[in-house]
Simulated scan of single mutants.
Amino acid sequence: MKRMMYVSALPALMALLWVTACGSPQKETTEEETEMTMEEATPEEVEPSIVDIAVGSPDHGTLVTALTTAELVETLSGDGPFTVFAPTDAAFAALPEGTVASLLEPENKDQLTGILTYHVVAGKVMASDLSDGQVVETLNGGTITVSIAGGTVQINGATVTAADLSGSNGVIHVIDGVLLPE
């Protein structure tokens, strides 16, 4: 009789051990729950600021150096929106020899800031917003003039070579010349 009691208790004991070892049954995850979990785990892509765009460009090293020297990086990384007419490295190199080096000297910071803010307009101005003969006020208080002929857009004679590089806080239009305020 004792032997029979052990034999009949054996299946119950094995079932208890199996449940304990395997843990509680897992709830099946629905496809919707999986998508939600994946979305939560994936960081949102953040659109780069106009400064980030310039920093990431192989053609705007001089502009980034100038913005850093003039302490304008934080300003142009702010909420904006801003429109920047961004001269390329080649545009800066076309200035008379020694001009860029001189502007980057600490004693010329105010002049450098004036030149750089002459390239910036308040608001997000897309290429389609520009019109021939349009006069636009810049952040330094001066004005620039837009010319459009044969599909080519120029700002004070500098040609826009790439337009509408949109960032989180504005837009960049790449130009092939440095704009100098009067």
Rank of each mutant, 00 (worst) to 15 (best):
D79M: 09
G78T: 11
P87H: 06
P96H: 11
F85Q: 06
P96A: 13
A91C: 06
A70P: 10
D89W: 02
F82A: 01
L72S: 04
T69S: 15
T83Q: 04
L63D: 07
P87D: 10
A66D: 04
T69E: 14
T69G: 05
A90Q: 14
A86G: 10
A90I: 05
T68W: 01
V84K: 07
A94G: 13
L72D: 06
A66V: 00
F85D: 06
T68H: 07
A94K: 12
A66Y: 03
V64R: 10
L67R: 06
F85H: 06
D89F: 04
T75Y: 00
F82S: 09
A86L: 12
T88N: 12
L63N: 05
P96Y: 09
P87L: 06
E71G: 14
P81W: 06
L67C: 12
A93D: 15
F85K: 05
S77I: 00
A94F: 11
P87Y: 07
L67F: 08
V73R: 06
T69D: 08
D79S: 14
T83F: 07
A90S: 15
A94V: 13
V73N: 02
T83A: 10
P96V: 05
D89Q: 13
A70V: 10
L72T: 10
L63I: 07
V84D: 03
A94T: 13
A93I: 08
P87M: 09
A91L: 01
L63H: 02
A70C: 13
V84Y: 02
D89I: 00
S77K: 12
L95G: 07
F82I: 02
A70Y: 08
A70R: 03
V84A: 09
V73P: 07
T75F: 01
P96L: 11
T88F: 11
V73S: 09
F85M: 08
S77F: 00
V64L: 10
L72Y: 06
G80H: 08
A91K: 01
T75E: 08
P81H: 12
L72H: 02
A70Q: 08
A90H: 11
A91Q: 01
A93W: 04
D79R: 03
L67S: 08
D79Y: 00
F92M: 03
P81L: 11
F92H: 03
P87A: 12
F82W: 14
P87N: 04
F82G: 05
T65L: 14
A66N: 10
L76S: 11
E74W: 00
A94Y: 13
A90C: 05
T65C: 01
V84T: 10
T68Q: 15
A94L: 13
V64D: 11
A94S: 15
D89V: 03
T65Y: 02
T68R: 13
T68D: 14
T69P: 01
S77M: 07
A91N: 04
A66K: 03
A94C: 13
G78N: 08
T75L: 09
D79N: 13
A66L: 07
E71V: 01
L72G: 10
F85E: 07
A86Y: 04
T75I: 05
A70M: 11
